[in-house]
Amino acid sequence: MTTGTLTLPVSETKPEKSSYKGKVHPDWCPGCGDFSVLAALQKALFELELQPHQVLTVSGIGCSSNLPGFINTYGMHTLHGRSLAVASGAALANHELKVVVTGGDGDGFGIGGNHFMHTMRRNLDLTYLVMDNQIYGLTTGQTSPTSPVGMKTKSTPHGNVENPINPIPLALVGGATYVARGYSGKQKHLVEMIKGAINHKGFAFVDIFSPCVTYNKNNTYKWFAPRIKILEEEDHDTTDFYGAMEKGYQWGEEIPIGLFWKNDKLASLDQLEPVLEEGGPLAYRDPRVSKEQSDKLISELL
C-alpha cells in the first residue's frame, strides 16, 4: 500500500472561541441574517467543545451555502440542492464525524426537496440548518418555495400565486426526529437550538428565519420582531406530535420559534446499520476482504 499516511498526536487542547473562525470573511450583504447563523453555529461548536477537525460542514449552493468557507471545520461546498445526499454519504462512511448541513430554502426545499424528504425518513444523524429567507438571493431575487402568496419578486412581478411550503409540518410528517425553528434576530436562542440539534442522535432540522435585506422587502427584521414567540417561554410539549403540528401551522400575528418536536425513541440510521456496529468508521477500515470471505464468494459460483 503506497498510501501517504502520517501519525498525528491526538489534540488534547480545548478549542478556543477563535478556533472556528474561517480564513475568509463572509461576503454576505451587510445586515444579512446569515451572519448571525454563522456566529450561532460557531458558538454552539465552541460550547460543545468539538474539535474543528471532527466537524464536517456541508452545503449546497446559494448565499447561505457559502457558509463552509467562512468557518474553520472540514467543509464541502457541493452542488445546488445536493448537500443532504453528499452529507449522508459522508456521515455513513465516517459516522464519528459531526456533520452539519447548511443551506437555504431554495436549495433545500426546491431543487433539493427529494433528498430532504428521504434524508428525514432515514433519520440520518445529521444537523440540517436552513437559512430560510423566502427568496432566491444569489440569483438576485426570484420566488422561492417559501415565498408567501402575493409576494412580488423578479420571477413573480405580478405577485406569487403559488402556495408556499411550510417547512415545520413538512419535517414533522417527513420523519425528522428533532424539528426546530430559529430566528437570526434571536441569536442566543438559536445557539441553543443548534446545540440541541448537534447533540440529537438522528435527523435534526432547524428552519431559521434569516432575513434577506436586499431582495425580500416583505419578511424583514421589522416584520418578524413583533411576531416572534419563543416556544420555550410557553407551555409546549416537545413530545406531543399533534401539538407540534398545530404550532407548526401557526402563522400571522404570532409566529412560534423554538423546539417543536423531539423524538428520542427512533434509532438513527447508523445505529440501525449492522455494518457500523464495530470496527470504527468505514473510511478508516482496512478495505481488504479476507481469504475466507473471498473463498466463500467464489464457492457460491460453483
Binding site: V58, R82, G89, A93, N94, A283
Partner: peptide, 22 residues
C-alpha cells in the same frame, strides 16, 4: 455499506460524500 437511494442524483452525490471521507 449498501444503500438504495431515492434517485441517481442522490446516488452519485452520496458516493462522492462517502469517498470524500476516504
Amino acid at each position: 455499506m449498501v444503500r438504495q437511494v431515492e434517485d441517481e442524483i442522490g446516488v452519485m452525490n452520496m458516493i462522492i460524500g462517502a469517498a470524500h471521507t476516504g
